[in-house]
Design a binder for these strands. Structure first.
Lengths: 211, 211
DNA sequence: TAAAGTCACTAACTATAGTCAATATATGAT
DNA sequence: ATCATATATTGACTATAGTTAGTGACTTTA
């Protein structure tokens, strides 16, 4: 009976959750993830600590929610970037451009602190990062369509499924990003990613007809 | 004047450090990294908490020391494994066997808990993991010699340096391991690694003479 | 509209990593 | 032997994430 009802009570609850979320967002942007405590978030939001844990399972969970919301925007941007290529463009060219686009987003738009936090959250597994690593993430569709195109153009191998190649590519990108995180700032994500994908792409392309 | 002197004092200090190290090792093996507090370690070792922080910078630092010690043993094992191949074996065959060997070591000998802890420690960067990720790690030499052999045998590309290929291979292995950590247990490290290296190796091999 | 029930919220609590000023003890010089 | 110095060690302290029993406000039901 009490489903979907916007009562005075639920309205207040939504407002409380929003206040916590906004306060955290502002504090994180100002001081960085590592320098903001739950205490400072709830103080700014004007609620108690226990209240925080009603709406978020953990500090990491809140951070991951923030990131997941961002990822959604990012993936939409990726999608429109992909659609900006004129039909008939070689898939391998698109792939390289797209890798550069991703690298730029990771290193510049999102930035080291945020990405490091996300990768830490992912591996600590104290929080559900499905939105970022789930195979239904829009990013997989974007990659998938590039690979499909390469196969249609007769340039890519056909003995491995589109789905499999897609997963290996995204895993490689994640691996590169992890390496960037642990070696920062002594690792040029752009150079290394392009070099790595040159090798990987070479392994995905159909071999030239043997003699 | 007081360098390298084994006095009653330094002997006791060494003994104290060893006690902490051993106590931690035993407790970690028994309860897992996540379920052992610094308090419980110092209690078992019979020293104070402050004393712990004289010998180890953090709990993570102690864990990483334990892991680094283990890694040393592992790398020696890798080296002797490599030397067990008869001269003239194809480098690409060695590479695949070696990947399987590494996967087995990671998943079975070391195990999920330990690897997850290491990867968390690496990315949190609250501790120096040079021993594991430093380019002077023995593992790089082992990989390097496989790649060199492939080039000598005329099977691998020569337009990228041995050093570069080595780094990309190890980074790929690290990426696979990271993926295993975040998707455990729904990710078959063995299958995925072999499949991934099939692609990567394909990209490293010299193309068959074009028609 | 009054009682019963549900839900948002509080604040004091625990657990645990890490710090630091004070203390105890070994060593070296006179 | 005695004192001064260096160093190993202590334990009470802070900081911070997360828990929980309790309270009061809102909603439903009779």
């Amino acid at each position: 009976m009490n489903k979907e009802k916007i009562s005075k009570r639920t309205a207040k609850a939504d407002e409380t959750k929003r206040k916590i979320y906004e306060s955290a967002d502002q504090l994180f942007k100002k001081h960085g993830f590592d320098n903001v405590s739950v205490d400072s978030i709830v103080e700014k939001a004007g609620v108690s600590k226990g209240c925080f844990y009603v709406y978020f399972d953990s500090k990491n969970a809140l951070i991951t929610t923030l990131i997941a919301d961002f990822v959604d925007t990012i993936d939409l941007d990726y999608k429109s970037y992909l659609e900006s290529f004129p039909p008939g463009t070689m898939a391998s060219d698109i792939l390289f451009s797209f890798v550069e686009k991703m690298v730029n987003t990771i290193a510049c738009t999102l930035g080291y602190d945020l990405i490091k936090m996300l990768y830490e959250a992912q591996i600590s597994r104290t929080v559900n990062t499905e939105a970022v690593m789930g195979y239904n993430r829009k990013l997989y569709q974007v990659f998938s369509s590039i690979i499909s195109q390469g196969i249609k153009q007769g340039d890519f191998r056909t003995d491995i499924s589109v789905d499999t190649i897609t997963k290996h590519c995204i895993m490689a990108m994640r691996g590169l990003t992890y390496e960037w995180c642990i070696r920062y700032p002594y690792f040029d994500l752009n150079d290394q990613s392009l070099q790595h994908f040159e090798i990987l792409l070479n392994g995905i392309k159909k071999q030239k007809a043997p003699a």
